[in-house]
Amino acid sequence: MSSDASSAPPNAPDASIFQRLHPKAYLERFLAAGFRADGRRTDDWRELSVNTGSINTAEGSALVRLGDTTVVCGVKAEIAEPELDKPNEGFLVPNLDLPAICSPKFKPGAPAEEAQVLSNRLYDLLTSCDVLPLDSLCIHPGKAVWSIYVDAVCINYDGNVFDATAAAVVAALASARLPKATYNEETNRTICSRTETTSLELKRRPLCMSFGIFDSLHLLVDPSSFEEPLIESTMTIAVDESGDVCSLQQEGMLRIGDKTTESIMQECFLAAKKRRKELEPFIDNLR
């Protein structure tokens, strides 16, 4: 490795050194020519691929790649006793792990701030728009309910992890098969069938679309890991299959040139809806 680095003369103009030392100027020069550092236009999304059911130990699973960002999500179903005040409601437990394997910026150990924040946002997304009604997870009121653990693991962190995670979670839930469970009141046990399975009743299938504003001038859709630290404002819009907005998260100053806030919002909503339509074949037919 060391021999590679020393082969170039020390003062040679090298784009990758310029990129590391002056990332902002580097991106500015690209945008001045109408492109981004990875060759995309500002309104180009990266390619999405969804592969479901590849993990046999999970009740449902999905591998999602958004460009190089890779997220694997697995659904495990366990049986628990419901809470006393909610005898008919099961549990939905989503978590996103950003392990040290996915990026040099994460250290091994307990989940860091970013993973905790994103896990919480994921939980909010799933509960606030009622993706999986909790009363559909009831096996026997007051005695047994399903507890659905949705664990997403990021394998490669190349920006916009939340969009990829939301897609992986929805795809894994949509493709999950639970064994048919019956509660026996005499023995006080829940027995499952190996042969009969049911799928989860997903009410809505929200997908997230993220935008970043760079330099108060450019609206970048689907920011990459290089662009993310340079962005001063982000917006994530979740849109379901019928085109309704489920959730919106915006951070930082919303300003692009002399456009009004409303017109920027409008632009993002339209772009998000258009993208949601394009993603239809990946998500909406999953059973």
Partner: peptide
């Protein structure tokens, strides 16, 4: 506190044929 936790206890499904 760093993760979203579910119920205090939950068990893997028990299958009839097992």
């Amino acid at each position: 506190r760093r993760r979203i936790t579910g119920p205090e206890e939950s068990f893997a499904p028990v299958f009839a044929q097992d």
